[in-house]
Design a protein around this nucleic acid. Structure first.
Length: 313
RNA sequence: GGCGACGUAGCCAAGUGGUAAGGCAGAGGUCUGCAAAACCUUCAUCGUGGGUUCGAUUCCCACCGUCGCCU
């Protein structure tokens, strides 16, 4: 099963509560920021005390500078899953990175074409030249008219990736975008009414910055030699914290920016998850999110897939 | 009290006698190897009232407001 939804709604505490209730369950992190090693404050990676003894996989497994993508995560997730299956332990996938969850659950075939950084840089530069992205879009249309129709030709990253796939395997884009090995899963969405959600985000953002914890984390990361740009791309909040550190932003302004960016991010997450009709949404109130355990457990029992497993077959 | 400047969307801001750039914020959306990313769509009738004009946000007058200088 998976618990998904916008950031700051309490997915982790809820998942932990569910795992404790089930007894034989472990968490599998599906948050693209929490996989980064040693950056826990700004990424809101769960702490040991928040996990209450429940193991959580794929947490802090890569360095900030290290390139990492959905494919890496899926590979890791599949490994975790088979290991858990072997031990007869149930996995609870928790996280807000929709693409990761989808890649695992739907079994997106990522084409087996790893990124080519040098070539990407080259094309990105081309896209910033005279003709803009259109130059790349035209190339894509030439090489695969059909495939091009399914790509957002205004989006450099998408076009560049499409070309990258064609470079590597030729043929047509469509052939590289199948689905293989999905996992049928119960999907639980956790969200809150707008005002509560805004409140949760504000409280979290304030605590993160005003306590000084994020600033401290940024300081120690820099002391370890982590490059600035790696830090900035480590998630919402790091850019703001860095700005406070070098004095270009007041703490108050940083808090505002963090709140704003986080809200916008939450909105994007909602947009992503809302279109998936399989998700069963639970709405939390201002109280603790783990009060919803019972509802999750009910959902598990009602769910045919899990029902069989729970009854011991 | 006098003189001067300014008054364009929530904020910053360009501009023209023919019916309002852009950025930020907001709202909505897209999504198959950077996804807390990248991208798309959308959002004003120009302080108020008169006048000139075929037509004014753009010219003139008055008023209101803000800022500066002077007394």
């Amino acid at each position: 099963m998976a618990i998904v939804g916008p950031t700051a709604m309490g997915k982790t505490p809820l998942a932990v509560a569910v795992a404790l209730r089930l007894g034989d369950a472990e968490l599998l992190n599906a948050d693209s920021r929490q996989v980064i090693r040693d950056l826990v404050v700004g990424t809101c990676a769960p702490t040991d005390s928040e996990l209450r003894g429940v193991p959580c996989h794929l947490l802090g497994v890569r360095d900030p500078q290290q390139p990492y993508s959905v494919a890496d995560w899926v590979a890791g997730a599949r490994a975790v899953l088979s290991q858990l299956d072997g031990r007869g332990v149930r996995a609870i996938v928790v996280g807000g990175t929709g693409l990761y969850v989808s890649a695992l659950v739907d079994g997106l075939d990522l084409g087996g074409v790893p990124p080519d950084p040098a070539r990407r840089r080259q094309r990105l530069e081309a896209s910033m030249g005279n003709g803009g992205v259109d130059v790349l879009g035209d190339e894509l249309r030439d090489r695969d008219p059909q495939g091009a129709a399914a790509v957002d030709l205004r989006n450099p990253r998408r076009v560049i990736r499409a070309l990258e796939i064609l470079d590597a395997r030729g043929g047509q884009l469509q052939a590289a975008r199948g689905r293989v090995g999905g996992r049928d899963a119960l999907l639980i969405g956790l969200d809150a009414p707008r005002d509560v959600a805004d409140q949760l985000i504000e409280v979290r953002s304030r605590r993160m910055l005003e306590s000084g914890a994020l600033i401290d984390e940024v300081h120690s990361a820099m002391a370890r030699g982590i490059p600035r740009d790696a830090l900035e791309s480590a998630g919402i909040g790091y850019r703001e914290a860095l700005a406070v550190v070098d004095g270009s932003l007041t703490l108050e302004a940083a808090v505002d920016a963090l709140i704003r960016r986080t809200r916008r991010y939450a909105k994007t997450q909602r947009t992503w998850f809302r279109r998936d009709p399989r998700i069963r949404w639970l709405e939390r109130g201002a109280g603790p999110a783990d009060a919803l355990v019972d509802e999750v457990i009910d959902a598990i029992h009602q769910d045919a897939r899990s029902g069989q497993r729970l009854s011991g077959r």
